[in-house]
């Protein structure tokens, strides 16, 4: 069995007026277990972690089927800020090297 399993699950359709909504989520499952039989005794442990993240709602109507993705805006913005932090670091380093290089030439 793989250490990490990921699979997409769909829920029961929700009917709202003429429209039908099907919720969809990504389930990530991590599972690890161990059991040992030794001369002095028997011992074991087990750990598991599950993450369920909504990924989309699927709209079924007269117009057809449409998939509306669900995005984690907070996560996206935090990743953007982290990328900004890396950019500032490299910008400061490059500026310093350029200034030092020019100073050395002068």
């Amino acid at each position: 069995m793989p250490l990490i399993q990921r699979h997409v699950v769909q829920g029961e359709p929700i009917r709202v007026g003429q429209k039908e909504i099907v919720p969809e989520a990504l389930v990530t499952l991590w599972l690890k277990r161990s059991a040992t039989v030794g001369m002095d005794g028997v011992w074991g442990w087990r750990a598991s972690w599950v993450k369920i993240q909504p990924t989309a709602v699927i709209e079924r109507g007269r117009e057809g089927v449409r998939r509306i993705p669900i995005r984690d805006e907070t996560k996206r913005l935090l990743i953007g800020l982290a990328a900004g932090a890396v950019f500032v670091f490299f910008l400061a380093e490059i500026a310093e090297r350029l200034a030092t290089h020019r100073g050395g030439q002068a």
């Binding site: 087990r46 598991s48 972690w49």
Partner: peptide
């Protein structure tokens, strides 16, 4: 978004 984890040993 939901996540949960468990651990046990004996």
């Amino acid at each position: 978004s939901v996540s949960y984890g468990f651990g046990m040993g004996f």
